[in-house]
């Protein structure tokens, strides 16, 4: 039986994942210290019978999900607005783009304790920290989307007698769109990072509290399960943004 390359790639990945889980299961059952490692089967068990029966955990997950949505929405709003403001003129790009890039390069996590001092330990702090992470990739990509344009498209538009509005609407905007989508994808990843960092830092409530509790009581199964659920959420959200990107950029074929 012959398989297409796509199918071969898919099955190779599945086999690798299965092999890894199997190795982990065998290792955890035979040799590992149960205070630190638990086998995948017990993790699954813990997810179903411990985590999902703990209203505190469900609450924490739901809360961080809506914190993420608010932070991401704000990051898009500010990122696009400031990106447009800076990218509009070539002078604006020249003067402010390097500033934005340098700010983007600063490890923002050093501001986390300050954010907690300013906004407290509630959702406001986590939203603000997620926003401050997600904002930069969106702004940067909007700006570079306005900068990188094929000069021939513009010349062709001019030769056809297009107005400035026409050129903005039919050439600059769609050209910026692909860069914007890249920004939205990166923005999602970084907003998530910001929210997770804040969640883990504030360990008196929310997800940070539960991870700390499970780690300190040497109960690895629910800890692994909680992390796996969060990672799964992250993967799903990223795929969601990717799916929207694919729809928006159908022409890239």
């Amino acid at each position: 039986m012959r398989m297409t390359t796509g199918a071969r790639i898919f099955w190779t990945r599945c086999a690798m994942l299965l092999a890894a889980l199997l190795c982990w299961e065998v290792y955890a059952r035979l040799w590992a210290d149960t205070r630190f490692v638990s086998p995948p089967s017990l993790v699954l068990h813990a997810a179903i019978f411990e985590l999902f029966r703990e209203p505190g955990v469900i609450d924490a997950l739901v809360t961080s999900l809506w914190i993420l949505f608010v932070a991401y929405a704000l990051a898009i709003l500010f990122g696009v607005a400031i990106g447009l403001a800076v990218g509009w003129s070539s002078f604006g790009r020249k003067a402010f783009f390097p500033v934005v890039l340098l700010l983007y390069g600063i490890p923002q996590v050093i501001l986390l304790p300050l954010f907690v001092l300013i906004f407290g330990i509630g959702p406001a702090c986590k939203i603000a920290f997620g926003l401050s992470h997600g904002f930069f990739p969106i702004a940067v990509n909007v700006i570079s989307g306005m900068k990188n344009i094929n000069i021939l498209y513009l010349r062709s538009g001019h030769s056809l007698g297009a107005s400035s509005f026409d050129i903005a609407r039919y050439i600059y905007l769609p050209n910026m769109l692909q860069s914007l989508f890249t920004g939205l994808r990166l923005g999602m990843t970084l907003t998530l990072l910001g929210v997770v960092l804040a969640e883990l830092y504030v360990s008196t409530q929310g997800i940070g509290y539960w991870t700390k509790l499970y780690a300190e009581t040497h109960d690895p199964a629910p800890l692994f399960a909680l992390i796996a659920i969060l990672a799964l959420m992250a993967v799903i959200l990223n795929e969601l943004v990717r799916a929207i990107e694919r729809r928006g950029l159908r022409w890239r074929g």
């Binding site: 021939l152 498209y153 010349r155 062709s156 030769s159 056809l160 039919y170 050439i171 769609p174 050209n175 769109l177 692909q178 950029l249 022409w251 890239r252």
Partner: peptide
């Protein structure tokens, strides 16, 4: 005007 490269807009 017809240019060197195709100026069909990719989007």
């Amino acid at each position: 005007f017809i240019f060197q490269e195709s100026t069909l807009l990719p989007w």
